[in-house]
Design a protein around this nucleic acid. Structure first.
Lengths: 165, 165
DNA sequence: CATAAGTGGTTACATTTGAAACCAATATTA
DNA sequence: TAATATTGGTTTCAAATGTAACCACTTATG
C-alpha cells in the first residue's frame, strides 16, 4: 500500500498501527502458539500443566527448595506455585517434607516417579526447543538470545519504575 | 557451574534443562511482562482489555469488517472477538450495523468516540513499542523481525501438521 | 422448493487465573 | 515475654478464557 512497506526503523510515528507488526502483539501470538503446542504435549502424556512442568524442571536441578524459593526461580506467583505443587503432590511426582527449623516451610523434592517423568520430559522439551531453533542459523540463535535479554530488562524496568508516563 | 556456561549451539542434548535458557519459557515471561504492562495502561485509562484494543486497532485501519473478518486478522478466536465486540459496543466505541445482503453478518465500525479513543491509544501503544525497541540497535530490530517470522512459521507448522512425534 | 449442510455470531458451562484475605509459625521490638 | 510485624503457604471469590452447544440465516443438493 504505502511506499515504505518495509521501513524498519519507524522512528517517525505513523498514524495507523499495524497490529501484525506490533511487537507486543507478535510476541503474544508467538508465545501462545508455542505454549499451547507444548502444553498439549505435556498434558496428554503426563497430565502436567505448564506451571507444574516448570516446577518439576526446577526441582529436577535443585533439590530441597521451598515454594518461596520456586517463586524466586520461576517468575510465577505464590498462588500458581501453590497450586502446581499440590497437584504434583497429588500425582506423587513430588514430596513435601516439613522443615524442622521452620515449621511453616515445606521442603520439596521429586519422588522416584517424579524423577522418571522428569527424565522423560526433558528430552521432549528439548526436542521442541531444538525444532524451533532449527529454523534459525547459529548467528540468529545468538542474536535472539541477546535480544530477548535486552527486551526483558526493558520490560522489567516498566514494572519496577512504574509505567510510561 | 559447568565450563561451557555460554555454549549457544546446544546441539548436544544436556541432561538437565535450564528453564531460564529455555526458549518457550523465556518467550512466555517476556510476552507476559510486556502484555501486563500495556494492559494496565489501556485498562486504567480507557477501560479496554487487550482483545478489545486489538479489535479497535484493526477497525481503525479497516472499516466495515465483520466479526469473522476480525477473526482472520487477529489470530483471536470467535468467542474472544464476540466478547470484545459486545463490550466495545456497550462503551459506544464501535457501531454494529446489519449487512443487508446477509442478515447474520454485522458490519462493524468505530464510532466518533471510538475513533477519538483510537487516536489517543495509537501513540501510547507506539510509545511502548518504541521504548522496547530503543533497547535494540537498528540491526537488532531487523534481526528480531525476521527471527520472529521464522519462529512463528515453525510453531504454526506444529499446529497444522500435528505435534512432534 | 424442501431438506440438508454450512456460516456468522452468541450463550452456557467448566476451567484457569489473579487479587486479596487469611491462618499458622517465626522474627522483632518494647 | 507480651505485643507487633513479617513470612510461608493456602483458600476464597471474582474475572478471564476455552470448548462445545446453540440459534438464525444462507447456500447447496435432491
Amino acid at each position: 500500500m504505502t511506499t515504505d512497506e518495509n521501513s524498519l526503523q519507524a522512528a517517525v510515528p505513523q498514524d495507523d498501527l499495524r497490529l501484525e507488526k506490533f511487537l507486543p502483539y507478535r510476541l503474544s501470538v508467538l508465545s501462545n502458539r508455542v505454549s499451547n503446542a507444548i502444553a498439549q504435549a505435556y498434558g496428554t502424556r503426563f497430565e502436567l500443566t505448564i506451571p507444574a512442568w516448570r516446577v518439576m524442571a526446577i526441582l529436577g536441578r535443585f533439590p530441597d527448595l521451598s515454594a518461596a524459593d520456586l517463586v524466586e526461580q520461576t517468575a510465577m506467583d505464590k498462588v500458581a506455585i501453590s497450586r502446581a505443587v499440590s497437584s504434583l503432590f497429588k500425582n506423587d511426582y513430588i514430596s513435601r517434607s516439613e522443615d524442622p527449623s521452620d515449621r511453616r516451610r515445606q521442603v520439596l523434592n521429586l519422588t522416584e516417579l517424579g524423577r522418571e517423568v522428569y527424565e522423560r520430559i526433558v528430552p521432549l522439551a528439548q526436542q521442541y526447543e531444538n525444532d524451533l531453533m532449527s529454523s534459525l542459523s547459529p548467528e540468529e540463535r545468538q542474536q535472539l538470545d541477546s535480544i530477548i535479554e535486552k527486551l526483558m530488562d526493558r520490560a522489567q524496568a516498566w514494572a519496577d519504575r512504574g509505567l510510561i508516563d
